[in-house]
Design a protein around this nucleic acid. Structure first.
Length: 519
RNA sequence: GCUCCGGUGGUGUAGUCCGGUCAAGCAUGUCGGCCUUUCGAGCCGUAGAUCCCGGGUUCAAAUCCCGGCCGGAGCACCA
């Protein structure tokens, strides 16, 4: 082996070694605790259908679903629509939540709607009264609150089982009206956290005034979160609850109920909030903003809803990677758009065909373009099988007209020669009042390279299509794109050369509408 | 105020349970270079962290203990 051979071998070896090292490690979920305790893992996602889903729910959804799949378990979707008054559900959201889950590739195995289950909750309410774990309290809430802070019981707490049962029936039959009675779960009145002391389980809602979107005014006694969710988690066999840390004390409260019923509390995992720089992630801000006309809709690009992310060409795989990366820590995480985009681009780049689109267009008249030319460009620089883009360029009286972007004017003026990508090298650039002129210098790329000419994208005036694009701040910009763009199906993501990635949102009236994704 | 939970480069995260191999890894972002008929992708390199602070235990602490500071969550007849 001579020296050259050795060098070769060495460089080859170290190259491969480096490649192997730099290969991105596929993030995997850490093991779920307590799996040995349960025969089969059961998780659930339990949204209130009072708004569309946003990035803040992504942790709960993806972790719950993926852990269920990882352990060949079961993933349940449960709609928690038990507040007909303040956080009232609305019919369209049941469907939109399901759409978002499907888009995220989180198919559920079972589906429940709590507003269908009121009789079950009533049954357990009675059971809890019978084991003296619950009582019907008719105290004014200020009075009760004061007693609570003093760690002293309210008069209703010592009522007999029989009296409580009667009172509960009076809640159900309408003798008590809204605000007059509430079923409470007995806890330790000395519990250091006043928030857990004798928490309310069921209350009365005047559903003639506040009809429920699904069951109207059929029921007047409605469960509160801890009661219905707590019961359902056991009843549905949930083994692992994955939810936000705001629910931490809810677990403490629910455990009292579980002990009366002789149940074991599932393994609960609490994660912190997931935010994104500048992204609007509050249900009330989303709802109010749309009502006020501040946002164009649930898919407004400034919102961090799944609908908006999807519209911008963010892939569900990207969101999943982010979730895997931030994991299940109880700390809040603010992820940056650049991280999101970078992950997205890595997935997108080998998939997205390339096209020319010129925004802020100006006509460029090319002089000295004497003969008709056909040019063929690849849709993807490295993936030939993706196909080709063909242009037929027919000059008129030795002049060819193309659109270029005003944004490139400054760049062009810095050089004597510039090149229209794939087409021609130009010189003697001259900006007239409403158009620009330039003269053919040469055609081959080698000359352009030699002269260090900047590369400009372009669109032929004779063969082009109108393009509108919604930018990330919600503005609409217009321009012209090459004809082939119109052949790409709606929803596909393309790369506009030198501009960035964009998703085709619609095609109508000879206009292609795009949503900008990422540079 | 009370009750919990946390604090690792700009951001996110690994390591913390079972102290040494961590003068701290990875990703993203920054800056520079290479490559490329894209300002994309890829490749190479660079800079950036007294591991919140103080004390203690120890031969040895990002890791254990105590105190402090800062941040978050909860304290609804909401979910």
């Amino acid at each position: 082996m001579n020296l050259d051979d050795q060098k070769n071998l060495l460089s080859k070896y170290s190259f491969e070694e480096k490649q192997a090292q730099s290969k991105r490690e596929e993030k995997i979920l850490p093991p779920l605790p307590d799996i040995e305790k349960y025969g089969k893992v059961v998780t659930r996602f339990a949204p209130n259908p009072d708004c569309v889903l946003h990035l803040g729910s992504a942790r709960a959804i993806i972790l719950s679903h993926d852990y269920a799949r990882m352990y060949s378990g079961k993933f349940i979707l449960r709609f928690e629509d038990t507040d007909p008054r303040l956080k009232k559900a609305s019919l369209p959201f049941y469907d939109s939540i399901k759409e978002d889950l499907k888009w995220l590739k989180c198919e559920w195995d079972e589906e429940y709607i709590q507003s269908d289950r009121l009789p079950i909750y009533y049954e357990y309410a009675k059971k809890l009264i019978e084991v003296e774990g619950a009582y019907v309290c008719t105290c004014k809430s200020e009075v009760f609150k004061r007693l609570l802070m003093e760690k002293s019981p309210c008069p209703c707490r010592s009522l007999s089982i029989k009296e409580n049962l009667e009172r509960f029936d009076m809640m159900l039959d309408g003798t008590f009206s809204e605000g007059q009675a509430v079923l409470r779960i007995k806890t330790d009145l000395n519990h250091p956290n006043p928030a857990v002391r004798d928490w309310p389980a069921l209350r009365i809602v005047d559903t003639r005034k506040h009809p429920h979107p699904r069951v109207g005014s059929k029921y007047r006694v409605w469960p509160l979160y801890n009661f219905s969710a707590g019961l359902d988690d056991h009843l549905m066999g949930v083994t692992h609850i994955i939810r936000g840390k705001e629910h931490f004390t809810n677990m403490v409260r629910q455990k009292y109920m579980y002990s009366y019923l002789g149940w074991d509390y599932p393994t609960a995992i609490h994660y912190g909030r997931l935010k994104i720089e500048g992204g609007v992630l509050s249900k009330s801000k989303i709802m109010q903003g749309i009502a006020k006309g501040l946002y164009s809709g649930f898919d407004d690009p400034r919102l961090a809803t799944f609908k908006a992310l999807r519209k911008r060409g963010i892939l569900p795989e990207t969101i999943r990677q982010i979730i895997y990366e931030v994991n299940i820590k109880p700390v809040d995480a603010t992820i940056s758009w650049s991280t999101l985009y970078s992950l997205n681009k890595k997935i997108l780049d080998p998939l997205a065909p390339r096209y020319f689109v010129v925004f802020n267009p100006i006509i460029l008249a090319i002089k000295g373009f004497d003969t008709e030319r056909q040019i063929v460009l690849r849709k993807h620089p490295n993936i030939e099988s993706m196909g080709y883009r063909r242009f037929r360029l027919v000059p008129e009286n030795g002049i060819l007209k193309v659109y270029i972007s005003r944004n490139d004017l400054e760049l062009i003026r810095k050089f004597d020669v510039f090149r229209l990508m794939g087409l021609v090298n130009l010189t003697e650039f001259d900006l007239k009042f409403s158009y620009a002129e330039a003269k053919v210098h040469s055609f081959d790329i080698e000359t352009a390279k030699k002269l260090n000419a900047p590369l400009i994208h372009w669109v032929p005036v004779m063969e082009c299509i109108k393009v509108q694009m919604v930018t990330s701040d919600g503005c609409l910009i217009e321009g012209f794109g090459e004809l082939g763009l119109a052949d790409e199906p709606v929803d596909s993501i393309v790369q506009l050369e030198r501009e960035g990635f964009a998703r085709i949102d619609s095609k109508q009236d000879n206009i292609v509408k795009l949503y900008f994704s990422t540079k």
